[in-house]
């Protein structure tokens, strides 16, 4: 939860000034810093070789026709032109992904917040419940759970048979153009455990005297939530919204596994990342795939910047600082 702390800086404790004073000696500070950087060296090397290097190379590839077998040729903006002007599947993939992002992010976060508020009370066995609700987010992105999902929601699966025994029509959710995307959305929403834990941590930090104060003022359950919980939780909420939006744009594994890599039936689960993968690894058009990857990166970067800008209007930091 260190990432939460980054958005919500901790209030300095009384013990801190002494240590700060001790560290300001210039030479010692320099020595400490050098040691730190030296220890970071292996990580920097890894970052340069395995992350920054490939990243820059992929930017170069996005302007080429690289097909994995022959050396890349410079084609300028041809990949981007084809993508925006001549590729209906690209727009279809964008549409599928946007539907997913717009549905999954709010539903998942609403579930996470609701369960976090419920689990914030002192009850017997609350620890067990927290673990149980958290469990799906540990399992959810795995291939195994996607496979289970496929057989549960597929033809003759548990869900279909369950509906049948209730007298409802038996439905093959996986091989249906109407239901395949909702089935994947449901799988994503089921994994609300990670944002839930972050919400719980945020809820714990809200001082209880504030609740007592509004209660005295006559606020009910909703009033306490509306006027204390929500404003004080807004930095955590913002953090979760940001993270979940970015994650949703990158959704890949469940769609890949459930549709067997095809994005089917009939492209109904063709996520952006899945189409990117197909362009690269089944069509061997790595130039085009790289162009798609950079377009996604740029889109998410712009969106993140806009969300930070918008957050000024509604995120409330207790220490008075604004970002």
């Amino acid at each position: 939860m260190s990432s939460t702390a980054r958005l919500d800086p901790p209030v300095p404790t009384s013990a801190a000034p002494k240590r700060t004073h001790h560290r300001t000696t210039p030479i010692k500070g320099l020595a400490d810093r050098t040691a730190g950087y030296v220890f970071l060296l292996p990580w920097f090397a890894g970052l340069a070789i395995f992350t920054v290097g490939p990243l820059v190379y992929s930017l170069y590839l996005s302007f080429t026709d690289y097909n994995l077998l022959q050396p890349p040729h410079w084609v300028g903006l041809a990949n981007f032109r084809e993508m925006f002007a001549h590729d209906p599947r690209f727009y279809h993939a964008v549409k599928v992904t946007l539907i997913y992002v717009v549905v999954v992010t709010p539903v998942k976060l609403a579930l996470a917040l609701a369960v976090a508020v419920l689990l914030n009370r002192r009850r017997r066995g609350v620890g067990l419940y927290r673990s149980l609700f958290y469990l799906p987010s540990l399992l959810g992105t795995s291939v195994a759970v996607a496979l289970v999902w496929r057989s549960m929601f597929g033809q003759g699966g548990a869900v279909s048979n369950g509906l049948g025994s209730l007298g409802l029509p038996r439905t093959d959710f996986i091989n249906s153009t109407t239901w395949s995307l909702p089935a994947i959305i449901l799988l994503a929403c089921w994994q609300f455990g990670a944002p839930m834990v972050i919400f719980l941590a945020g809820l714990k930090q809200i001082p209880s005297e504030l609740y007592d104060a509004v209660s005295v003022d006559g606020a009910g359950t909703w009033g306490r939530f509306r006027h204390v919980t929500l404003p004080l939780l807004s930095p955590v909420l913002f953090f979760n919204v940001l993270l979940e939006t970015i994650n949703s744009f990158q959704a890949f594994t469940p769609a890949f596994v459930i549709s067997n890599g095809s994005g089917g039936p009939a492209d109904s689960t063709l996520f952006y990342t899945l189409y990117l993968y197909q362009r690269g690894f089944t069509d061997f058009r790595f130039g085009y795939a790289s162009a798609m990857a950079w377009t996604l990166l740029a889109t998410v970067a712009v969106l993140t910047a806009l969300m930070f800008r918008a957050s000024r209007a509604w995120v409330f930091y207790t220490d008075g600082g604004s970002r």
């Binding site: 010692k28 020595a31 050098t34 030296v38 060296l41 292996p42």
Partner: peptide, 24 residues
């Protein structure tokens, strides 16, 4: 305190370099 820290720093530099080298 100072000399100990310095020798610690030297050890740290050597250790980190060794780790980095062995990884490569």
């Amino acid at each position: 305190v100072a000399p100990t820290r310095r020798s610690k720093l030297a050890t740290a530099v050597i250790a980190a370099t060794a780790v980095a080298a062995s990884l490569t």
